[in-house]
Design a protein around this nucleic acid. Sequence first.
DNA 1: AATAGCGCATGACAACTGTCATGCTGGAAT
DNA 2: ATTCCAGCATGACAGTTGTCATGCGCTATT
Lengths: 198, 198
Amino acid sequence: MKILLAEDQAMVRTALASLLRLEADFQVTEAADGSTALKLLQQQPFDLLLSDIEMPGNSGIELAQYLQQQKLATKVVIITTFGRAGYVKRAIDAGVGGFLLKDAPVEQLVSAINQVMAGKRVIDSELLLNSLGEQDPLTDKERQALRLAADGHSTSEIASTLYIAEGTARNYLSEAISKLNAANRIDAARIARQKGWL
Amino acid sequence: MKILLAEDQAMVRTALASLLRLEADFQVTEAADGSTALKLLQQQPFDLLLSDIEMPGNSGIELAQYLQQQKLATKVVIITTFGRAGYVKRAIDAGVGGFLLKDAPVEQLVSAINQVMAGKRVIDSELLLNSLGEQDPLTDKERQALRLAADGHSTSEIASTLYIAEGTARNYLSEAISKLNAANRIDAARIARQKGWL
DNA sequence: AATAGCGCATGACAACTGTCATGCTGGAAT
DNA sequence: ATTCCAGCATGACAGTTGTCATGCGCTATT
């Protein structure tokens, strides 16, 4: 079984990879960031993608969305640090099969992988409960703009990155600020991140 | 060789423990938080403590300080996520033998453990450079203003919190932006936080 | 004692940011 | 088919932010 492991922290990545390789039929490929993972997914077929959410480049959710759009059969298991509410709904929408906290033993990961490969859904119950609360009010474009703003990019940089006019970029940020009852873009980014919507 | 592994994220902890146990002469005990680790250190002798810094209960640095005070022969290797400059100095002061980033492969960890047991010091060069090289260029007021800005507070809020005029607050932020080669206050906060200056 | 330098403080001005009115499009409901 | 609405897109305008020149007080150096 071909597994792609995407995780940016090298120690965690190599440790997990070594352990998974102990399983006789697991063939593990490693990717240190989201962009590398995306390239590998485009080049060759994998049975399963095991990915962190927060990574430089593309996030685990974006990778899952890509697989869904391309109608690839690759299953997805997400592992992440915090149980941010928004992620779970977006992950389920992106067809993710498993969603685990890093705050769980490795045995649970292996068992989750096997269940997901058998076509089941495995979502950590703590995360599931969290996700029933508030819904993410941001549109995709608003989220993209906010993420760039949170990284310190200027409005003109955001505009050219998203191929829109500066006014439009400012409008997205303004909408996000208003939806989140924030004082400015920084405040909005802080709130969104805290709720797991970034 | 008796090793105590203190790390709060279960998946990382169990993965590292499983890998270390593959080494024939490593006998690994796990602790999920700082307080548990401290109790174990008090109850029985260990040859080496392998610890994260940021944990609930006692931090890895505090555990190292305890071992130093009790004049125990237990060696210490610290693994951590971010290269905050301050930590390195404090770790060295606490007699820590090794200091690695989680952003390093597991092989490096095993080799570091062996070198530390042989009496050597292994400090990740990136961390060392960080701690010796760059000095925090921010003044206290600049840091305060930047911290408030990073939390989404407006200039007028920052000004009244610090009992200064708005122009002054803007000036602190401007100085911080310029000292850090940042594009705006958000970027400056991001850079400062990343370097451990916030 | 004079000077140099740093941190603190301020306001004027230019540049950037947030808001709002407006228009367009495509999908859902009637 | 028509209406409604959410999302996307834009520019004008007001409000906020960043820069700079300027000045004050303190400490260290000459």
